[in-house]
Write a protein that binds this DNA or RNA. Structure first.
Lengths: 233, 233
DNA sequence: GTCTATACCGTGATAGAC
DNA sequence: GTCTATCACGGTATAGAC
């Protein structure tokens, strides 16, 4: 067992997994993304990892807990990066070296998503797909973990967005953040409704291209004047 | 898919299921939404429906095919309504009695979604949740069906959006439609990322309230000037 | 502590009797 | 059309080897 220095906050290594556990994690991640959570059996995972079936229940508690470990391994560095970006923006804004506007706040979470999408060694775009599935399937245990450990991250972004959109109520701010997050996640995840209908004219593979189209959409949506139109004047 | 007379368009009956099959369909729909696709066993469905286990494989081919039947029963009337709204808008626009702009086009698919969300007898908001799961999980068989039977619907909306946003390229039009559909679906489905982090200030139960917040966001996003900002000037 | 073999029960699917 | 019996496969738990 190695000692880990506490000074490297924000870019942690992966100290706590044995080699067997790591082999399971990596095979599981690949298969979960490829086949989906329910379609991948523990027997397939352990076979591809070259370990015994019971090793999963020894190193992790259950298949669900294994999935949570796979998720947390990719999510936590990313979430730390999102937090660090926001803190850096706030510091630079106080120092007068950066503008504190909606685009700057949005880019604080878009930049880490972009970096993650381009880095296969951290799961790449595949992890974002996994994340979007978590969002839709509403995992109970994962919701508890995210709420306990990372709820403050959402609170920070809500406060930041409230500062750059001063004319809006707290509820409207929450809606803008909700919709802005939602559209970015599903765009990065490639959840394309046009593709579902076989009519995808969108080439959603290049992360930079995604950002190019999503960011203007989100910024315009966030800055929209609150109103209600139903098409019947 | 057979051609339907224009008189019953949008409000079709359900002629082709026996009473046993219908009991299975309704129990399955309730449980799929409540517990998720994989978490609901055929034994639970047939028990609540008061039929034998093997009846599912007799009336439907498999559990997957049962799910597709559940989905199609709710989706098809809705898709017909979306098509009818667009055709009505085009007719009224040609007659000079309606404006043909982005808001009018967006409302053509928002209005049916709103009506569906408010009508428990057609699955209500629960069906939209089911639909969002289909979108993310990328069902193979369902994708083939949607592409074959309803691809033209997406084509029609793409053409309509291209008419009201004349300054944009075909690829940009596809992106706007993709993002606009995406954000509306997940908003109606209640796929709230803030809720996943235990920080939901959004009360997303009232469909009218959803429309009130989503439509301005989508319209602003669709009308945004194409540009690229990365926060580093 | 780490790993393995194996048994248990619930799942979807199917064949064949009625 | 409906039902019973049976199958292979899934996640899980445990006893025991090293």
């Amino acid at each position: 067992m190695k000692t880990s220095s506490p000074s490297d906050a924000g870019m942690p290594a992966e100290p706590k997994y044995s080699e067997t556990a790591l082999r399971i994690l990596e095979a599981a991640e690949r298969l979960f993304v490829e086949l989906g959570l329910e379609a991948t059996s523990l027997r397939l995972i352990t076979q591809q990892a070259g370990v015994n079936l019971a090793a999963v229940n020894y190193h992790f508690r259950s298949k669900d807990a294994l999935f949570e470990a796979v998720f947390a391994r990719r999510f936590e560095p990313w979430a730390r990066e999102c937090l660090r970006e926001l803190e850096r923006l706030e510091a630079r804004s106080s120092a007068g070296t950066a503008r504190f506007d909606a685009e700057a706040v949005v880019m604080c979470y878009v930049r880490p998503a972009l970096a993650l999408s381009k880095d296969p060694s951290r799961g790449g775009a595949l992890f974002v797909r996994l994340f979007s599935r978590v969002l839709v399937e509403n995992h109970r245990a994962l919701r508890e973990t995210l709420s306990r450990d990372w709820g403050h991250l959402v609170t920070r972004y809500t406060e930041a967005l409230g500062r750059v959109l001063p004319g809006l109520s707290a509820e409207e701010i929450a809606w803008r953040l909700h919709l802005g997050f939602s559209v970015m996640f599903h765009a990065f995840a490639g959840n394309d409704i046009l593709k579902l209908f076989g009519r995808s004219a969108v080439s959603a593979r290049d992360p930079d291209l995604i950002v190019k189209h999503v960011v203007p959409f989100v910024l315009a949506g966030m800055g929209a004047a609150p109103r209600f139109g139903d098409g019947t004047p």
